[in-house]
Nucleic acid binder design. Sequence first.
DNA 1: AAGCCTCTCAACCGCGAAGTA
DNA 2: TTACTTCGCGGTTGAGAGGCT
Length: 300
Amino acid sequence: MGRSPCCSKEGMNRGAWTVMEDKILTSYIKAHGEGKWRNLPKRAGLKRCGKSCRLRWLNYLRPDIKRGNISLDEEELIIRLHKLLGNRWSLIAGRLPGRTDNEIKNYWNTTLGKKLAKTDRSSSSPPSLKDINHPSSKSRSKRPVSKSSCLFPTKATRPRVTRYKPLEGTKVHASPGSSLPSKNQSLYSITQEYPPYLQANYRPSGSTCQQGLDSESPRSHRVHCGAHDDHLQKNFVGDFGLINFGYGDEFNAANVMCADQPLTVEQEMLENWTASFCVEEKDTLDLDSLAYLLNSEEWP
DNA sequence: AAGCCTCTCAACCGCGAAGTA
DNA sequence: TTACTTCGCGGTTGAGAGGCT
């Protein structure tokens, strides 16, 4: 039978996206919502394959993409989640609002993986963040320290190259990866707070574990729902089951485990969250619980 | 100054899972 | 049930930028 290509390669643009292409894609998705990637380029008038459009949107154009360096808390979370989940970047990204799986994957491959490998070699015991952030190795310490990055030697020695193009009007929106159902907030009420072009396909995180809520794009139920994964079942229920997220009754353990409900600990991140329209300010995450979680020695 | 090296990250590719007819 | 389509994931690649010699 053979696998049919996702699209005809002939006459297609490849490589870096132009500003114009970005604009076309962004405005199309804002008007029509995500999904139907295969037909999207044709309808939008783009000479790109659907896959490429999807990737560009998810990794770059999406309005809730968080730019800038990975914070210490985020890094710690990545390390812990990677320990737990392995190279399941989309699941890890689901816990880091505004971060994409590609970004985390890149960050791991270029920075964290190396750091951890180094520290693992030099010590048989699991590395602490202190070890990771202040490794004894001076292999690249010749490079001057950048003002803009101060967290880690590897970053400091080589300023992060920021090549992304400026996006006008970029602001944080709630997305499946960043929406956090707050106390006493029903799933549906969150849906209502999505902008129209997001409502078409975005659904509150809980919906990915609740079959039937999204009849338009049923596929969105899978992948991000860690509850369907045995490994996650075992580990996340065990690890997160004790946390009081302060959700209502509709959030059972399986819902809490949903990968697209972010698990975050950074106050600034939370404030950014609540600053967006997704979560009302008065409804806050139980930070104490999360702080306890990260500080806990029982974390893997 | 120029060539080489290292690093980052956007983009591509192939595959498997899930949905559909 | 099965053949096919579509989507999303993880691994990999390569262009571009900056540092080093």
